[in-house]
Design a protein around this nucleic acid. Structure first.
Lengths: 213, 213
DNA sequence: GTCTGTTGTCATCGCCTGTAGACATCACTT
DNA sequence: AAGTGATGTCTACAGGCGATGACAACAGAC
């Protein structure tokens, strides 16, 4: 139990830490399902079976990953342009985190998924909801969730490389577009924007037969 | 080779069709990776090994699923409110299709993923890009992709049940919000909206230490 | 009626996953 | 120096996956 002044050759705490770091990195850009325990072990330089020993299993390692290093935890809402920029930048460098992925992708383990979703609520949805409420938004809960879902779609598609121009665009190009995407309905214009009005050239026709899934 | 007037007890074409239908349904709401060949066989009432026999494998069955029943194929862009409404409605009933999922989720099989992404481009990105271009948009490619990524984020999060209010919201409530999300920048207002300006109460402060992945 | 190719059924293979358990090795206490 | 618990290493299991190949049952041609 002595405070490890000398670097111990066999150090459980160090192994734990290396597993935790490796897991966080891998989960961040491959997601939960697609990172294997063996991958984590290899990246950490630690035997994969240690995951079970130290954390109880892959799912619990993932949860530990979520709670570890959430830092000083100053969750700013996405309407803050600084926050948006830094978030976008970090995602560009480290990949979208498992927290964001959890919103849109099914997880193999329900416990892990729940934990990630709870964290998503706490970190990003709740702050934005509060902000919208403070701004007097009519339906802050719905708009906050819609907003963040849209944001997640963009960053995930971006880092997935699905869309050519989206992936190639710099964060500098993206920021103004994203801000506009997240813009609140402008109360100054009574008509609530021209997008809705511009679409009335089509009648009540139905598009039933088309079927793209 | 006689034209099957009498319903044959052993009918390869019928088995093929049932596999195709079962596969489309399952892929639609579980995605490619999470639907197993055995699941498809069970739902179709056909032995799973027939998949390999008739299609060559799971991946090629998936691709066949994409190409089959793309119907009269009138791809309308998402700015058409009718199209948006019908799309939202169908997703609500049948789940998000594998095509949408491909934009944001990694697929186990690269061939399947490529096929899905190509289809996504053809069916929804290209039409919207053309529409934006016709409308004189400054960067139609980027905006179209951004737009659709956001839309996919919303519908996927919605059907994943991640967000309480988003999942509970009716398509009627969602439609105006989505339309506004997809609204083009309003050229009538030179300031390009108040959202950007409203956030300048915070200075150039950095949020470095925070770390939500 | 017999023959032949098609269609359906079944067992099983090879691979990958998470993880449990046996064993070896080290560090620290006495 | 000996003992003892903590730590690391290795093998292997049970389950799920897609896919293969051997075999059985049927339908149509002759």
């Amino acid at each position: 139990m002595s405070k490890a002044a000398t670097p111990r050759r066999r150090d459980a705490a160090a192994s734990r830490e290396r597993l935790l770091n490796a897991a966080r990195e891998l989960f961040a850009d491959r997601g939960y399902d697609r990172t294997t325990a063996r991958d984590i072990g290899e990246r950490a330089g630690v035997d994969p079976t240690m995951i079970a020993r130290y954390f109880g299993g892959k799912a619990q390692l993932f949860i530990a990953t979520l709670h570890a290093q959430d830092g000083p935890n100053p969750p700013a809402d996405l309407l803050d342009p600084e926050r948006l920029a830094s978030l976008l930048d970090r995602i560009g460098r480290h990949g979208p985190g498992p927290v964001f992925q959890a919103a849109v992708r099914p997880y193999g383990d329900p416990d892990a998924q729940d934990a990630a979703r709870t964290e998503l609520q706490r970190r990003v949805v709740a702050p934005l909801r509060r902000r919208l409420k403070d701004d007097g938004d009519a339906q802050p809960e719905l708009r906050a969730e819609l907003f963040i879902a849209a944001f997640i779609g963009v960053v995930l598609a971006r880092s997935a490389g699905t869309f050519e121009h989206l992936a190639a665009a710099s964060t500098g190009e993206l920021l103004p577009l994203l801000r506009q995407l997240l813009a609140p309905p402008d109360p100054a214009v009574p008509g609530a924007g021209r997008a809705v009005a511009a679409s009335d050239e089509h009648g009540q026709q139905h598009h039933e037969p088309e079927a793209d899934q």
